[in-house]
Design a protein around this nucleic acid. Structure first.
Lengths: 131, 131
DNA sequence: TATAACATTGTTATATTATAACAAATTTAT
DNA sequence: ATAAATTTGTTATAATATAACAATGTTATA
């Protein structure tokens, strides 16, 4: 099993810092544009950092939006159980942190013989303001 | 509220037929390539059909793979509650049809004030063969 | 039937998202 | 010191998706 750094590289830090400040999902090319002043000039630099950040759970990808958001669970180190709430009105995305839900889904089994080790759930609806 | 056709247009039928025969998720451009002999020559023709088929629930999009699969619930007319099982080994995707799960998720509420009317859940793991 | 309203189609071009490939520089372990 | 591995920088291109608009087809109803 390949060893991997336990700390973040320079580019990974730059990208994570920027995402954490945003408090909302960001598109990869918008991140790219905004970190160009820090020296990351080309897409692979951003995508590589994102890949790693997602792998270690510091960042999640909102698949339905091709956007990236910082993990809110400060202790999160691996990203295998994610749930989001997405407002179709204002597009606000919130990470759902609900022990019952995650327990239910982590324990979910069906009779297919599949052994699940990861899930991603996206709820859509309208938030208070947008209703 | 705009009225919409209740039956499928020519292009929608062509695309749906092809997806239904596949029994596995297909990429939009692979669909395009394969329906060119039927006269659909450009991406918008395929994407438009897909958009509509997804909207009426005949087809689901597997967001994590940018792929499209026919709905297995023959009576499915609206696509607001979807769950899939995805094997990380062979990439096989199966639509999960589990009344308990869908009941649990359809009834899910948190204290955010969000009113959910749709969800999509993707489970990842290894199927029997790939373990 | 005529025709207005609307939905679908065909088409070209382009926007958006993401990766391949490889050389150079940096970091790590010995 | 130096080999091994990782990260970085860079160019090019692949893969996914939409904008815009003219032409055609369909539906309802006057």
């Amino acid at each position: 099993m390949a060893q991997k750094r336990e700390y973040l590289s320079k580019n990974q830090k730059i990208v994570l810092d920027y995402i954490e400040k945003a408090n909302q999902p960001l598109k990869a090319y918008s991140i790219l544009f905004n970190v160009q002043k820090k020296g990351l000039k080309a897409p692979p630099q951003v995508y590589r950092a994102l890949d790693r950040l997602v792998e270690i759970g510091k960042v999640h990808k909102i698949e339905s939006k091709n956007a990236f958001v910082a993990c809110k669970n400060s202790n999160c180190t691996i990203s295998n159980a994610t749930a989001f709430s997405i407002c179709d009105g204002c597009e606000k995305v919130t990470e759902i942190s609900n022990p019952k839900l995650s327990k239910y889904l982590s324990g979910f089994q069906d009779n297919s013989g599949m052994k699940y080790n990861k899930y991603n759930l996206e709820f859509f609806g309208l938030c208070k303001k947008c209703r």
